[in-house]
Design a protein around this nucleic acid. Structure first.
Length: 425
RNA sequence: GCUGGGAUAGCGAAGUGGUCAAACGCAUCUGACUGUAAAUCAGACGGCUCACGCCUUCGUAGGUUCGAGUCCUACUCCCAGCA
């Protein structure tokens, strides 16, 4: 039984489908806003919905460290905890193994541990030091599944080893092989836990208790296998083959959103699109820019997440469509980044993107005395959007929370309307 | 009016004889950001130069000294206390 249904494959190569999760059926391809610590920074659940999000991503590593998965479980699971009733996917912490590991902290200083690596990988799992307080912890493939099941998420990622894009062949090979062995352990543990859960539900319903119709109880969460292997075709093929044999619910393509100076990832994405099972969803982890997502979807990827729209928004940058009327000026470069903190926007009266209909840019249209249609001048009208670049730049400079909220809403809308468009055209 | 204290780069503020074009913070400018240690980080921030480097600055004007943001004198302005 597969919970992914491929409806059709568009001429562009984009796969249109749907994914059935314990928290509802969602259309693919989709983009997941990143809410690492149980919050898409600055956004409330209803705001995410209003901008078109129907699934979000959170993080095992972070929630385990704080507030702890047991606390979240006792408070009703992650969905209830954060009051988000749509599906949630959690990353496993595999990326943190990468980003907290030695040689990879390219920016800033280690806040807790000086220059020492926070991570030590062994066959059994990964020992790491909390970035919060330096305390030691140990993740195994089983532990990471347990945490995610306790969080109650819809789509789980197994613990993997995500090597730097700059790693040597041997390092990548070792990481890939370990990822495969860990995937097998994760799968075995996951299946046994799910089986227990299912039999318990069966048992309860046969005992005269009311049958549970809630999809939360009847639709099982999904576990992905994560394909590693760097840019090496042999390793990628081998890894994919072994994971496919284990029959995961879906497949993730990892290790491509790291160390971008070495990025020639398209060949690998193309390969993945060709060899991963057609009837399972494919998740390209951590990618990417809007243009990246278009390209990847055409190569057969179904799921995306990226910190760019939210992080860039907090750093003052917004995406602007490069189109004239309905034609893109250049198909492979549809979006430009604009940093509103640049001095040129201080007095810019225009909205971020006049072709954008997000809640920030959208403004009621009216015709003036000469019959020209333009943005309503009635700024005082409630709920009318139409915030000027000058105003948003001012808010950002003043460190007003509303500034980064506006840019975040806009950028997320860009991503979410983009995938929506992908599904339709 | 008297007695103290003070005037440093856009602002605030270190610096009390050489290593000072001058710490640090803010502001400003630019860049980076792809499974979030990230409302963060990096760089620039007197002038000229790609750069080595050169030139002009620490209230104003003189002076002492090989050498002054730092010491002395006068002046201008500000602050506090006392009249």
């Amino acid at each position: 039984m597969t919970q992914f249904r491929l409806i059709k494959k568009l001429e562009s190569g984009v796969r249109v489908g749907e994914l059935e999760t314990p928290h509802g059926i969602i259309p693919t391809p989709f983009f997941m806003p990143v809410g690492t610590v149980g919050s898409v920074k600055g956004m409330l659940p209803n705001e995410l919905k209003s901008v078109g999000a129907n699934i979000i991503l959170s993080n095992t590593y972070h929630l385990y460290l704080r507030p702890g998965e047991q606390m979240i479980k006792s408070l009703g699971g992650l969905h209830d905890f954060m009051r988000w009733n749509g599906p949630i996917l959690t990353d496993s912490g595999g990326y943190q193994v990468f980003s907290l590991g030695s040689g990879h902290n390219s920016r800033g200083k280690n806040k807790i541990n000086g220059d020492k690596s926070l991570v030590k990988i062994t066959e059994d799992g990964v020992e790491f030091k909390s970035h919060l307080d330096g305390s030691k912890h140990f993740f195994t493939p089983e532990k990471v599944i347990q945490i995610q099941l306790d969080l109650g998420v819809d789509i789980l990622m197994p613990l993997d080893v995500c090597p730097s894009g700059k790693a040597s062949y041997n390092e990548i090979k070792h990481a890939t092989e370990l990822t495969i062995r860990w995937a097998e352990r994760a799968k075995r543990y996951f299946e046994s836990r799910i089986k227990n859960q299912e039999s318990r539900i069966m048992h309860e319903s046969q005992n005269g208790k009311p049958m549970i119709n809630d999809s939360k109880f009847t639709i099982r969460p999904m576990l992905h296998g994560i394909v590693q292997g760097g840019m090496d075709e042999g390793l990628r093929r081998d890894c994919a083959k072994k994971l496919i044999e284990m029959d995961f619910d879906g497949y993730s393509v990892g290790g491509l959103a790291v160390d971008l100076e070495t990025r020639n990832m398209w060949q690998t994405v193309k390969l993945m699109g060709e060899i991963l099972p057609e009837n399972k969803q494919r998740y390209l982890m951590g990618v990417g820019t809007p243009d990246d997502i278009i390209q990847a979807a055409r190569l057969g990827m179904d799921m995306f997440d990226c910190v760019l729209p939210t992080r860039l928004a907090r750093h003052g940058s917004v995406y602007v469509q490069k189109r004239t009327k309905n034609n893109w000026t250049k198909d492979e470069e549809r979006y430009a980044l604009v940093n509103l903190l640049n001095s040129g926007f201080r007095e810019d009266p225009d909205v971020i993107d006049s072709d954008c209909s997000c809640p920030v840019c959208r403004a009621p249209m009216e015709s003036n005395s000469r019959g020209e249609i333009g943005r309503s001048s009635d700024r005082a009208e409630a709920d009318n959007g139409g915030f000027s670049r000058a105003y948003i730049a001012h808010l950002l400079r003043s460190n007003e929370i509303s500034g980064i909220r506006l840019t975040t809403i806009h950028n997320l809308y860009v991503y979410l309307s983009l995938v929506k468009e992908l599904r339709q055209t």
